[in-house]
Structure formats: structure tokens, C-alpha cells
Nucleic acid binder design. Sequence first.
DNA 1: ATGCCGGGTCCTACCCGA
Length: 257
Amino acid sequence: MKIATWNVNSVRIREPHVCRWLQRVEPDVLLLQEIKCEEKQFPAPAFKALGYDSVVAGQKSYNGVAILSRIPLDVHHVTLPGLPPEDAQARYLEIAAAGVTIGNLYLPNGNSGGEAGFAYKMAWMDRLADRAQALLDSDTPFVLAGDYNVAPADVDYATGTLPTDDALVRPETRARFRRMLWAGLTDAVRVTTPTGPIYTFWDYQGGAFQRDRGLRIDHALLSPVMADRLISAAPDKNVRAEDQPSDHVPVLVTFED
DNA sequence: ATGCCGGGTCCTACCCGA
């Protein structure tokens, strides 16, 4: 089973990139973040032509997540459980497919909006940890993957790409990420490559990709059963060198059937 | 320490991202 996650930074602009990647890699399930459109604008027919059904939690202009699948699925949640009902940001979508619960998340960046913006990120991470714990308690095999907007350790961002008090690396941010690991989740990319830098994002500015000054902020966290099934997990770096790329690359995780 | 890039939209100057 192949599950991938990709912040595409506008699905309408990146439709050809996504189609090419689906055809080349043939994931069973692809989680998309920052689709930046409502469901009615989502290019579902292009993906359907390649054999993929779409589930969309859209929002005008900002955020937005979607799931493409070539295997049958059930939709379980279109928002992150526990958030206030007035929260209208489209950042979470959860399905079950082939007996695996799959959560697709676009975690708030936390740098805009001052301390209130950062507090929103912290609350969101608390609710995500709650969701992970509930799934652990139910003994459901699961994967929580997406753009976490967290560089978990210093090795996960190139020197000088972020200030030390950036919301992606603040101690409160990292503590909440670590709490999910301590609860029993496995960081698929990091256990596959235990040491050294592995980036999933390179800024558009300053020749960041050419200089390989990136961040590792897109993650797949696995429940214990899924960690036992893990074969490989890695970003597809070559995608960043295509024309008109997203600033993030896909992260592909492969499991034993 | 960022907004030089590249999306978005109130169509075009401004908001947002990491």
C-alpha cells in the first residue's frame, strides 16, 4: 500500500504536476494540502480520468485539503474533531481505506497574527494530539500525514532559513510534536533515514532549492501497527526541479500489504 | 531577519505563506 502527502500550493495551478506524479508513482492514496479553492473549482475530472476519486474539504483562496484515492474509501471527518464549531479553516480530512484510517492535515503556520496566531497553532496541535490518542485508544491502524509546519529538530532546517524563534521551531511547537511521538506514533521519514538532513520544502526565494537550503515540515506519523508494516518513506525531491513547482515536494510512504 | 517568489482575490495593490 502506498500513501503519499503533498502540499501543492494551489491544485488548479499544479493539476498537471499532480497528474504526472500519479501516473509515474501510482500511489493508492494521495493527500493534498493548500488546494486554495472550493470544492466546485477542484479539478476532480482530471484525476478521475486517471482512476482516482476525490474527496475535498475546500475553502476559498486559503488552506483547503483533499484526498485522491484509487481504492474504495469512507469519509470519516471533514474537520478536526474538537475544534470550535465556528472555526471555518479547511485544514483536516479523515478517511478510512483498506482498513487504515488516514488523516490529512494542514497545520497552521503560526507566524502570522501575533501571539493569537501562535495560540491557534498550539490549540490545533492539542486537538490533533487528542485525535491521535483517540485513534490509539481504539486500536485502529492509522496514518496522520500532511504539512505539519513543524521542523522537529535542528537537523530539519538548513542553517539560516528560519529565525530561532520561528513558529515552526519554537519549543512549544516541538514539544507538541514530540508528545505525539511519545504517545506511540512513529515519524516515518525519520525512522527510515535516522540521521542527516532530509527536506520536504524549499522556499521560492533566494535560490533555496539550488543551494539545498530547505526544511523538513511535511510528515507522516504512524500508529504502531502501521509502523510495523512500514517499508519506506521519503520525499520525492526531483519534483521540486520541475517547471512551476510547488514549494513542497510529495512524501511517499510504502507499507506491506 | 525576511517576503527577493509565487499563490490568492475585492483586478491590482495587497494578503498570505514558512
